[in-house]
Structures are given as C-alpha cells and as structure tokens.
Design a protein around this nucleic acid. Structure first.
Lengths: 376, 376
DNA sequence: ATGAAAGCGCTAACAC
DNA sequence: GTGTTAGCGCTTTCAT
C-alpha cells in the first residue's frame, strides 16, 4: 500500500522535463496571485476580484482567471489577507480538556456556530493550569483571532486587558473572569445543586454527603453553596465531615468514600451528592468495586449503589442504562457553548452594549438512584 | 470591541488628554514593533530580536525594549510573521465530529502532541459530509497550516494533490485516502471484528447478528469482513438477513433489532456483534426499552440484553458498569491521534521517507456480555 | 472594467 | 551589538 517515494509528478502533466506552461503545481512552489495574473494575462487586482467574488469583472475575464487558478493550483494565502484586512475569520476556545465529554460537547457547539459565521476554530486545552491558560490565550491573541471564548482556570485575567483594549472580543463560559468585567455565560450551579439535594431530602434523606471538586474552582464552590442552602432550608444540620472536596481522580474519590462510608460512623450518611460527572462516575466505579470485593456496605443494590441514594451534577451518557439509573442535575454544555459563541459573534458584528451576564438553568432528571429511600 | 473608531494615535505618543506617555493600551490601536522601537529609542530589528529571544542584544537594551513592550501592551502579530517565514506553527485536524467521545479522545491526543511541538491546532468537524470535508481541508490550506490530519469522509482526495505538491504535510487517520498515497494510520478493523466474533463463537454461538455502520464507510466494511472471516473459519453459515448496515441513529437500530429478533424466526440469533460504540449504545438502549415495555424476548437479563450475548467494536465509558458489563473490541483513539500527529511532525521535521502505513492493534476486553452462553 | 502603487507588520540579509 | 533595507502576498486607494 505504498508507492514510490517522492513522486515528482504532481498529477496531470507529463513528468520529467519542467514542462513549458501547463500542469498544476510545481513542487514546493506556492503560486501567488501575481503568478495567476501573469498566466491569465491580467492585472493582479483582477485576480483578487475573481478570487473574492467581487463584482466588476467581465465574465470572460473571470473565466480566464479561473482557468489560470485551476491550472496553477492556486490557493489564496490567508496570512497575507489577514495582515491586510486585520480580520482572521478565526476564533479561539480555551478550556480544560477537549477530550472530556462535557467540554467536547461545548466545543462542538462553538464550532457549529463559528462555522455558520464562516470562522474557523482554534481549540486549546488548559488542563486547568492557570499558566497554560494564559499562554494559550495570548498565543491565540498573537494569531489575532477575532474573538476568544474562555473557560477560565486562572484566578486573574487582567493579563487580557491590553488585548481587550486592542479590540479582542472575549466571552467567558462556565466560570466568570476575575479582575475584569466581560461577557459571561454561566450555569445556575447553586440552584442546580440545591434542587438536587432538595430532591434527596424530599425522598426522606437528612444525612447527605457531598463529594465535590476542588474549592479553587468556581463551579465547585457554587454547587457546595447550593448544597448548604438546601440543607439549611430543610433544617438538616450538616456534619462538615460529610463534605469532601478535591480532585476528581479515582484514588481521591476512593479515599473520600472510605471516609464517608466508614462503618464506625454512628450516623452514617444515607445519600450522596456528587459535584460533577467525573466524580459521579468515579463514585459509581468505587461503589461497584467495593460491592465486588466485600459485599459488605449495606444492601448490595445492583449497579453499585449499596443502598446509598445518589444524585450527580452533570448528565452523562449511559446514566439512564445503569442499574439503578442515575438521577442527575443536567446542565446543557452545548447550550453553554452555543450561547457563548452567539454572544461573541454578536460582539464581532458590532454589538456594543454593556457586558452581558447570562445564566442558564439546570434540569433535574430523576432516574432511580436519587429516589431510593433511606434504609430506615 | 466597540468604543472609538480609529484612534489616529499609534500609541505612545501623547494623544492629547489621557496620559502623557504611560499606561498600556490605547484603545483600538495595536502597537507594532515600530511603535515599541520608537518608544524604547532603538531600532526595529532590536525589538524583533528581543521579542524572539534572539542573541546579540545587550541586557540593558533588552530591558529597555521589554519595558516598552509591557507599557504598550505589545503582542507580536503572527499573521505578519507567518507571511514572512512561511510557517504558521499551526496544524489542522478534520474529522467527523469533535463532540463524539471517540473523536474527542483522538482530538485530545493530537492537541497534546501539537502543543509539545509548539503548534496550535485547528479542529474542524466534517459531519461525515464529503463536501464539507473538502471545504474545511481547503480552508485550512488557505490558512497555510503546516500540516493536516484527516479522518476522511470523502471518496476522492485528489483535490489535495496540489496542496501536497505545494508542500502540505498530510496524514490520514482511521480511514485511508482514496486516489492518492499518503501517510496513513489505521486500526486493524478486520482482525478486531474477527476476534470479537470468534470470541462469541468460542462461547458456543453460531447464529450471530451483525449491526454495522453504512457500507460507505471504510471501517465498516473492514469490520464486516472480519465478521465474515470469523464465521467462515468456524464453519458457521451466515444468513444474510443477520446483517444490518446503516446509520447509527436510534430509529434505524430499533428497526434492525425488530428484524433480527423477530420472534417468527425459526432459528433466532443468539448473539450480536455491533460495529461501533454508537451502535452498541443504541442497541443497549433499545434492548432496555424492549425489556421495560414487553418483558418478552428471552430471559430479561438485568441491564438490557435479554439473553442475547453482545460484543461491540469500540470501548466506551461505563461499559464496565453496566449489568452485564459489555465485552468490547477496544481500539485506542488517543493512540490513533498521537501516532498520526507524531508522524505528521516527523514529516515537518524533514522526514522524507516513503509514505508510511501504520496499523494499530485492537484489544478484546471480556466483561460479561460477550461470555453469555446461548440459551440452548 | 481594469490596473499601478502603496503598505499591512514582520523577518531575512546585509550594512555599520 | 545594532540599524537599514527589502520584501513575504495580499487588499486598499486611486488612476485610467
């Protein structure tokens, strides 16, 4: 399934012998508009007009030019165009991780909107590292993207002030900026968590654990505060040892569960609220493992929640097919991306109104795990 | 973003009123190297040297320049740089859908490699539409990306010949190109499917259904051929009505299952092989629904496979937590992306060897659903 | 309807 | 060590 090495012949022409004046691409040489103009026997500007579909070219001339374009395999150099026009028809998206299901949906929605506006999209993953975030954001600024959508990781975004002043359109998604005011699209994290926890309470739970993301992260503290609100509203006291914040990796979650489900606890928790999809999945995996390994903690409910009721923030694929199916507080990552991108393009189209602040609602999706009653 | 139109003052000069000669950004005006040079009282080239970390600048001068840079909020214009150097330090990735879990993992791996080489990544989704694929690919070529990784949808890639001739580095991932020879990284689809089906056969099945993607798609036909091979090797005759090819949407899969599980069949299938992750999930969802609705087809195994053994091509998150857990033929989307990207950057670094053709192995992951015995 | 000239902001090649 | 000059390929402006 491989041929010769570097076929010198580009296709279409008799190879060997540099050929006189036909056959498209000569290796390594990018034809320019000047080349096309020379070949078509017209002026440079006429080529430009044809390439850009500008009016004021006789059909015959246009055809001539088009033929030269095809023969030469010409493709307009957008770097040069950008330098001249100042517009790149490209936008940037900086977020935690393109490979994460939540962010990949956001990414997809942004891309869709960008496409509909004729823009291409640079996507970059910050890995939630503030330094990397600013590196990437500034690299995109050097590229002179027309606009930037950021899911910020940093705790200070003043480094973007010069860019904004210079005309960068900027929208923050999922988390607000720090140190400056800009368009922001958020999810109602507190209300969502509150709904989720209230749901558990409505099903008879009073001792509810909370496994959340690091308190460094905006959404995490918002969700925790929703948890506290729901508990307070129900008059349910919170034992601070029920709250476990930290990274979303399996090991940390395992430790947190060990602590939360410690059989020596006098009043064990009967329900659990998890602060994001990765935590929810990690919890499910831990519970399943515990069940396989020890078959001890409570009634081994099939699917991994040993009698423990569970509601998770974020929906995730297959949540509905687990046993029991997992009740979640669903956000709309695609909606987040779409809204942010639409806002960005509105700015690029000249919308000069004051910075907007949009909050998207969440939806509680009962599926089973959140409706399990307490053991009692 | 909005605000005043064209500030006539380039920056740095006293623009009447606001500040005399300090404070970074003057609105709307992007400072250039020339501005920085003027402000620092040095030549243009010296600024260039400092910005690019080139040697041959006295520390004192460099500090002077750096100060001017910071004060002005200067950021190098990469469009101009690219025009001059011919390199964009950017690569492109065209694939079906960034939001798909499989592709988002591939995307993440490509991005990681790009980053390690100092490149930014354009990602574009073709939606499996040939025209869109070529539009996007050519748009990226206009941007003069240094290289392009494509998961092709089109059936003809000759449109890329001029670009290759002009120096574009090009790697095809997951599916081979048509009409030209280029670096290609594939997965051993036939062998993987063969392994999966052989696994079912080893567990006593002889009547095995196959739900696959449209035969338009390369990987789909490869996998189907693996299915046929495994059956042939076992001397198991194939009833062509067991094979259902088509799109991966829920409705189509539902229809296919209706047909496959038709209770009027004299010899019903006892096992099913699904051709990709979306099909597998769609099947699981359909089976779960049937179980809820009718509780008829076979023994209602918890989790949705009513006695039907199931092996799916592609791993997917939570496959291990379903009941029964789903046996899969796992490919490595990240490996696919990483390998492709490494190959691309090797080319960009000057590797001029003949086009390479890499095939990555699959791994059978037994989890339960593929080890269910036939009802008999 | 068409073209010639100027210049976008930068770097490469040389001066000094 | 530093500055000057020339252009990268295109669009803009203004002639014709």
């Amino acid at each position: 399934m491989h041929h010769g090495a570097n076929a010198p012949s580009p296709a279409g022409g008799p190879e060997r012998g540099p050929r006189a004046s036909d056959g498209p691409p000569v290796h390594g040489a990018r034809p320019t508009m000047k080349d096309v103009a020379a070949r078509a026997g017209v002026g440079l500007k006429t080529v430009s007009r044809v390439v850009n579909g500008e009016p004021g070219v006789l059909p015959g001339t246009a055809a001539l030019v088009q033929r030269a374009i095809d023969e030469l395999g010409f493709r307009r150099n957008d770097s040069a165009r950008q330098l001249r026009t100042g517009r790149t028809a490209g936008i940037g998206l900086v977020m935690e991780d393109v490979a994460d299901p939540f962010y990949s949906l956001l990414n997809g929605a942004v891309e869709e909107v960008a496409r509909s506006h004729g823009s291409l999209l640079f996507t970059a993953s910050s890995e939630d590292d503030p330094r990397r975030e600013s590196e990437l954001a500034l690299a995109l600024c050097s590229r002179r993207v027309d606009g930037l959508i950021m899911v910020p990781a940093a705790e200070d975004h003043t480094y973007l002030l010069p860019e904004i002043a210079a005309g960068l359109a900027l929208v923050f998604a999922d988390r607000p900026p720090v140190g400056l005011t800009a368009d922001t699209v958020l999810v109602d994290n507190a209300q969502g968590a509150r709904d989720g926890v209230a749901h558990l309470i409505a099903h008879g739970h009073r001792r509810i654990g909370y496994i959340g993301d690091s308190s460094r992260i905006y959404t995490s503290t918002q969700r925790l505060s929703g948890y506290r609100q729901a508990m307070a509203e129900a008059g349910a006291p919170i034992d601070e040892s029920w709250i476990a914040l930290g990274p979303s990796d399996q090991a940390r979650v395992g430790d947190a569960l060990d602590h939360l489900l410690d059989p020596r606890r006098e009043y064990p928790i009967t329900a659990l609220f998890t602060g994001n999809n990765r935590l929810t999945v990690a919890v499910l995996r831990e519970l399943a493992e515990r069940q396989r390994a020890q078959r001890v903690t409570g009634v081994p409910t099939p699917g991994g929640t040993p009698g423990l009721a569970l509601v998770g923030f974020d929906d995730f694929e297959l949540a509905d097919l687990l046993t029991p199916a997992i009740t979640v507080v669903a956000q709309d990552p695609a909606g987040l991306g779409r809204t942010s991108a639409q806002l960005l393009f509105a700015r690029l189209a000249g919308d000069g109104s004051p910075p907007r602040h949009i909050v998207l609602p969440t939806v509680l999706v009962p599926r089973g795990s959140g409706e399990l009653p307490p053991p009692d």
